[in-house]
Design a protein around this nucleic acid. Structure first.
Length: 465
RNA sequence: UCCCCGAUAGCUCAGUCGGCAGAGCAGAUGGCUGUUAACCAUCGUGUCGCAGGUUCGAGUCCUGCUCGGGGAGCCA
């Protein structure tokens, strides 16, 4: 199939091919569009290596089997590269041999025009062949790689937290249950509840909603660690920002307090944005042109801004004095609504902000209690247009205080004995945060629906493909 | 889960006051041109989301359902 001989179109168009090789080029790809006339014909070929197509020129076009070629057809073309006479490309391939690998009948659904994202979601097996989804999938790969390079270059270890868990993932959402029991014939205990002792793991199990607790285990052994993997939430959320299966980045740092972690959050986000602008120019230019023409400026503005840091209490004071009508009135103790978050980051500060020290009642059990006994060392990072993009906290490292908090919240202590042990033996202050990978992709690209940055999105009622 | 909006040709959509179902694009055929979302001419395309109801007559009005979109909550 000339797998090793062929040249990728990206290398051809980005001048990674030496002049000596110009005379003997093989490319393999899919037809995007064809223009045929009596004496000359053109095909735009795409092989997925880049957004851009290679123009194939057929001089003496009647010698080639062009009638059988349409949008979507896969081809092998052999020829030689030359400077183009046309205006819109520098190099083009003059064809000498043409082989049709797989034809594409007239009912091929992708036309050479814009399709709606809603329609393309219904043909998720074909949409990666479009410009937009090609760019997104390549960018997704690149950004995943950058997340690894950020942490690896700073001495963090990449850890694999379990995907199947048996802890009740306190407060992080509903679990998808994992079982091998026969659902039509469930073993029951005497009280009528399901008897899990004969289930695969001997206890009730589910898919992970967060790798954080396990990340804390590794952080208190390896120092700095991060997870980057799939996360599952069985919540009936029907929004453009929620998926039932998504990817999350969760760094966890030993000997790190909240203020130090906030430095990392700011540096981390700016690193991702800077990388996107400098190293993914093709993708960013595409997003800026076709998805949201403010995108590049928004990222540039964030990179050059210092993130504002305020406490929840200060935020509430600002909102109470705000000259704005809120649907939900503000008072100390409530969780901030997205209208409040948007006011703070878009209207008041007009830049990214990090809000800290929330009331303990509205945050998770593992967050470190402040001396006021009312607030915990949590942080939400809010950015204009999107709202919360990162949530994190300094963890409660004091054994007795954590135990009391768990008892107050009536948690099953036995299930978390291992978590308490981290505080019993050589405890250290430590902090961590969670970044929704798909959401940062949305933010950088300007795509407004999470279903369009995940190749095969899973949402309530939909797990096709 | 709650609120609002929508569903008509392969795609994007129009369809007035309830009175014979429309356009552009895509596709097919022919022509033409170093073309580039090519261009010109000709041709075909319907379970009007599903199930009921009102009516002489429903794409149009009413009810229920399904699916999709936007917003909210939950969160990442």
């Amino acid at each position: 199939m000339d797998y090793f001989k062929r040249k990728k179109i990206k290398d051809i168009l980005y001048n990674n091919i030496s002049r000596e090789e110009y005379q003997d080029i093989v490319v393999l790809g899919w037809v995007r569009t064809k223009r045929v006339s009596k004496n000359i014909a053109f095909i735009e070929l795409n092989d997925g290596s880049t957004l851009h197509n290679l123009q194939i020129v057929f001089l003496e076009s009647e010698k080639f089997p062009l009638d059988n070629i349409s949008t979507g057809t896969s081809l092998r073309v052999k020829g030689y590269l030359e400077e183009s006479e046309g205006r819109e490309q520098s190099l083009e391939l003059k064809a000498e041999e043409l082989t049709i690998i797989g034809d594409a009948p007239a009912d091929y659904l992708l036309q050479k025009k814009r399709h709606s994202f809603e329609f393309l979601r219904e043909i998720a097996h074909l949409r990666p062949r479009t410009n937009t989804f090609g760019v997104i999938n390549r960018f997704r790969s690149k950004l995943a790689n950058v997340i690894h390079s950020y942490f690896q270059s700073r001495g963090f270890y990449y850890i694999h937290s379990p995907i199947i868990t048996t802890s009740d993932a306190e407060g992080a959402g509903d679990l998808f249950q994992v079982t091998t029991l026969d659902l039509n014939n469930l073993p029951l205990s005497e009280d009528g509840s399901v008897d899990y002792s004969s289930d695969f793991f001997g206890v009730k199990a589910g898919l992970t909603v967060s790798g954080q607790l396990e990340a804390e285990v590794l952080a208190t052994a390896l120092g700095d660690v991060y997870t980057f993997g799939p996360t599952f939430r069985a919540e009936n959320s029907n929004t453009s920002r929620h998926a039932s299966e998504f990817w999350m980045v969760e760094p966890e740092m030993a000997f790190c307090e909240l203020d130090e972690m906030m430095d990392i959050i700011e540096d981390f986000l700016k690193y991702l944005f800077r990388y996107s602008l400098e190293e993914a120019k093709e993708e960013m230019a595409f997003f800026n042109k076709w998805i949201d023409n403010e995108r590049i400026k928004i990222l540039e503005d964030i990179i050059s801004a210092d993130f504002e840091r305020i406490t929840y209490t200060e935020a509430v004071k600002i909102l109470e004095k705000a000259d704005a009508e809120f649907e939900y009135p503000v008072k100390w103790g409530i969780d901030l609504q997205s209208e409040h978050e948007r006011y703070l980051t878009e209207k008041h500060f007009k830049k990214p902000i990090m809000v800290t020290d929330y009331p303990k009642e509205i945050k998770a059990f593992y967050m470190r209690l402040n001396d006021d006994d009312k607030t915990v060392r949590a942080v939400d990072c809010l950015v204009p247009k999107v709202g919360e993009i990162i949530g994190g906290s300094q963890r409660e490292e004091r054994h007795d205080i954590l135990l009391k908090r768990m008892k107050d919240m009536q948690m099953d202590i036995d299930n978390y004995q291992w978590f308490l042990d981290l505080r019993k033996y050589g405890t250290v202050p430590h902090s961590g945060f969670g970044l929704g990978f798909d959401r940062i992709l949305m933010y950088i690209s300007g795509m407004s629906n999470i279903r369009d940055v995940i190749p095969f999105p899973r949402t309530p009622g939909n797990a096709r493909f």
